[in-house]
């Protein structure tokens, strides 16, 4: 009896154990180490001083820049992505075009990092093709007009290149779930287009729309490579600051780095929690 129980226990866990051990070693422990470290001083004593250290203008500043870029790129990505998804789902575009757009979105949402920065530098960088084309062909100097790719605005524009496709990929299944009969039922009950959107589609879609935007936000918040390759360190992102801290302890306080990491985990963690809550809400309705 004991033996067979033992056997069953071994059998039940044997397939999952390697995965759990791996996750513990390379996902949970490293993260926990940073979280615990955020509450310790250099002598391994409990402290909250590290979080006070986060209030240094250098750090709060970069948190705000990161939040700004993530939030603005998420909101714009949500807006443009929604419009594009609507055009694909209900605009009456040819079916072939829809398939092409969806494939392209799969590619573009994965085309992030350094090559994306290169593509934008080659297009609208100071000597980029579009920049010099406009200057020589039309006498328009976009840099003289105030445009700068290596700025917060330029970074947001670059981020949109993967944010919009990501929004399309998340949101297309939601719009595809809208049944034709809802529109017809509403119409028969006297509703016009605006009332249909206002009373039926909007209450149904807003959790998904906001949820998607939050996911885009978290996606942009953790990004680093594009910004690094594009701007070096001229835009002061929290990820870039942390990168510099890891390489050379620029803050001269190891545990302050841990506190920054904790702050980032808190922000992405809360974002993802909200996303999951909102998603499960709309999924309940559509079950």
């Amino acid at each position: 009896m004991m033996k067979s129980h033992w056997h069953k226990w071994v059998r039940d866990w044997s397939g999952v154990a390697p995965f759990l051990v791996f996750s513990a070693l390379f996902l949970i422990f490293p993260t926990m180490y940073l979280i615990v470290g955020a509450f310790r001083d250099s002598h391994d004593h409990f402290t909250l001083a590290n979080f006070l250290g986060l209030l240094a203008p250098e750090i709060t500043g970069s948190f705000f820049v990161s939040l700004e870029i993530s939030a603005v790129s998420a909101i714009l990505g949500m807006g443009f992505g929604f419009a594009l998804t609507w055009a694909i789902a209900f605009g009456g575009l040819p079916a072939q075009l829809r398939a092409t757009i969806v494939t392209f979105c799969g590619v573009a949402s994965n085309f992030a990092g350094i090559p994306l920065a290169f593509a934008f530098l080659a297009s609208v960088g100071r000597i980029g093709f579009v920049t010099s084309g406009l200057r020589h062909g039309f006498g328009i100097d976009i840099y003289a007009m105030g445009f700068n790719l290596l700025s917060v605005g330029g970074l947001i524009m670059t981020y949109l290149y993967f944010q919009i496709p990501l929004m399309v990929l998340i949101f297309l299944p939601v719009l595809d779930g809208i049944k034709r009969e809802w529109g017809e039922a509403a119409q028969i009950l006297g509703a016009n287009s605006w009332q249909y959107w206002r009373h039926i589609l909007f209450p149904m879609l807003w959790p998904s729309v906001i949820g998607s935007a939050i996911l885009l936000f978290a996606n942009a918040f953790g990004a680093i490579a594009t910004a690094y390759a594009l701007t070096g360190s001229s835009v002061n992102l929290i990820t870039l600051l942390l990168y510099a801290q890891i390489r050379g302890d620029v803050l001269h306080n190891e545990n302050l780095g841990f506190a920054m990491a904790f702050g980032m985990i808190a922000i992405t963690g809360i974002s993802n929690f909200c996303y999951l809550q909102l998603r499960s809400r709309s999924e309940t309705w559509l079950r």
Binding site: E181, A185, I200, P203, W285, L286
Partner: peptide, 12 residues
């Protein structure tokens, strides 16, 4: 009108 798939508004 009543539809085959009910067509109730899901968020109401």
């Amino acid at each position: 009108m009543v539809f085959q798939a009910y067509a109730l508004f899901p968020a109401m």
